[in-house]
Design a binder for these strands. Structure first.
Length: 510
RNA sequence: UCCUCGGUAGCUCAACGGUAGAGCAUGCGGCUGUUAACCGCAGGGUUGUAGGUUCGAAUCCUACCCGGGGAGCCA
């Protein structure tokens, strides 16, 4: 059955939606799926998606044969189609073109595609992630993710970095042991990696500048919009780099990602409704402050005022929405039927937004009280990071943290032994930490002492100590969380939308 | 693990102690340029599960299951 259709078997004959603007005036064939259908007497408007984009195809009963007309009539959402027609310029359409159809063939008719054009709850969408990926929003997000991945490789390759892979199965626990996935390795325990960091250092000593790009796993029972169990991390590691060089590199890196996406993902950013000004402000130099300065800023009176201002803003939005709801209800009886439905739909929107505002209003006082009582020496929480980013429009770099909150392999600040030469980069608009890194300890005696202090198994780190025995040098590196970066660039609230198949607490399928 | 909100038609929601209802989706009919099209008609329900209170429970109570948001931890 399927074999009888006129599939475009020759690559050179295939037309795809992404390059239709170069084909205005010509006739060709598109293969894809029906995303949406609108009908009028003698006319069908078929919105076709082929993975590269979306285009409206106009089927006019007078201009197609009976078979094509029947196909258009019976085609339902996500039916697979072969459409032939002329590419016409039409400024009214997304992408600026539409297809005047001369023939429609159906590869498969579909019954009851679960994801309808109206809104869905997140649980339903996550259960149908395998189909949800076909929708517009995932289309835009995944294309931006791809663009970011390309930028990452280009950025490092142009600077002479070697891409090398760290193992996924390890014997070592880099972070705390509480978040490790343990597996059985022929009778011995092994762990899924949480970071390629230590092996990255090995490779930097062998190849000077390297970066790893791979998945890491954290068995944390965290349920927040910023956490995944399995996520992708990019970890450059550079020999002969100190903390300042490390920060400069990380800064150039983020500037490059933002500018590449801005210049090449217009349509995708638009579809997501991303505020482009915010991305344009990702420019060097990023504000830099020490941890100690950040703590002072966080506890300052100005932070309290910012929280107050935010609360007032939310209160006034809240009362505006309530007024709108009340006036809608008062006028409701006088409205025509179709208008009532619009009002009903708006009411749901208002209810959802009011719920969000009330949640934020409950959280804000807690944020301030946690900031106010923050003590030098502890690590920033999610809300603390958010408050800090409110001060700036570009990402900010916070460096020189108390050694106790940083990993055992961080080098100490020669000017203050209480500090580690670590740095984090916080993305603006409340997106928070996307990069963490620093200068690595290069002294054998110090590292051995650190391993002892952290109760880590010394034997397992012998190969790591060898790096300090045989030609140790100052070196640095950092880790970028890919999904958090995608979330920030796309302006997406929740990290689950930034990876094709998110692995979260209680979610392992599809 | 803790705090908090929720589970009603395939989907999104309403009904808040008294006859379970709308929109979308689906089917049929109408409309020759629609943009989440619009108009008319139709089918569609063991109200998450198990108990309890009550003349009467989707609604109140208890336990459990599942999910959302937040905290801790982190990229």
């Amino acid at each position: 059955m399927i074999g009888s259709k006129k599939l475009q078997r020759h690559i050179e004959m295939q037309m795809t939606i992404d390059n239709l603007t170069q084909q205005i005036g010509s006739t060709g064939t598109l293969q894809g799926w029906l995303q949406q259908k609108r009908a009028s007497k003698g006319l069908f408007f078929l919105v076709l998606r082929d993975g590269t984009g979306m285009v409206q195809c106009v089927v006019n009963q007078e201009k197609v044969d009976e078979t094509s007309w029947q196909c258009a009539t019976q085609a339902t959402q996500e039916s697979s189609l072969i459409i032939t027609g002329e590419v016409l310029k039409d400024e009214r359409q997304i992408g600026g073109v539409e297809i005047q159809v001369s023939s429609v063939e159906v590869i498969q008719y579909v019954d009851d595609y679960p994801i309808t054009p109206k809104s869905h709850g997140i649980d339903f969408l996550m259960d149908h992630r395998h189909l949800w990926l076909r929708s517009r929003r995932p289309w835009a997000v995944m294309r931006i993710r791809n663009r970011i991945i390309m930028s990452i490789h280009k950025f490092f390759q142009e600077r002479g970095f070697l891409q090398m892979d760290a193992p996924l199965l390890t014997k070592n626990a880099v972070e705390g042991t509480s978040t490790l996935f343990e597996i059985d390795y022929f009778g011995n325990p092994a762990y899924l990696t949480q970071s390629g960091q230590l092996h990255g250092e090995v490779m930097a000593m062998a190849f000077n500048k390297i970066y790893t790009f791979g998945p890491v796993f954290r068995a944390e029972k965290s349920k927040t919009r910023r956490h995944l169990i399995e996520f992708w991390m990019i970890e450059p590691e550079m020999a002969f780099y100190d903390l300042d060089m490390n920060m400069a590199l990380a800064e150039d890196f983020l500037v490059r990602i933002a500018s590449d996406v801005l210049s090449e993902c217009d349509e995708e950013l638009n579809l997501l409704g991303r505020n482009l000004d915010a991305l344009q402000k990702v420019q060097s130099p990023f504000p830099r402050m020490t941890y100690t300065e950040a703590v002072e800023l966080l506890k300052s009176d100005e932070t309290r005022l910012k929280v107050k201002a935010k609360e007032e803003e939310l209160h006034s939005e809240h009362s505006e929405l309530q007024q709108e709801r009340t006036s809608n209800q008062q006028n409701y009886g006088r409205l025509k039927e179709w208008k009532k439905r619009r009002v009903d739909a708006r009411e749901i929107e208002i209810n959802v937004r009011i719920g969000e505002i009330e949640e934020e209003l409950r959280n804000l006082p807690q944020w301030w009280s946690s900031a106010e009582s923050f003590e030098w020496g502890s690590d920033f929480g999610g809300s603390d990071e958010t408050l800090l980013t409110w001060y700036f429009e570009s990402p900010i770099i916070v460096h020189r943290y108390p050694e106790a909150v940083k990993a055992f392999y961080m080098k100490r600040d020669p000017e203050d032994d209480r500090l580690a030469l670590g740095m984090d980069i916080l993305a603006p608009e409340g997106f928070g930490e996307i990069i963490g890194g620093g200068q690595r300890a290069d002294d054998l005696t110090f590292l051995e002492e650190q391993v002892r202090r952290h109760n880590l198994p010394k034997d397992a780190f012998e190969w790591y100590f060898d790096l300090r025995r045989y030609g140790t040098v100052p070196h640095s590196g950092f880790g970028l969380g890919l999904e958090r970066t995608v979330a920030w660039i796309c302006g997406i609230e929740h990290i689950r939308e930034t990876i094709p198949f998110p692995r979260m607490l209680g979610r392992l399928s599809p």
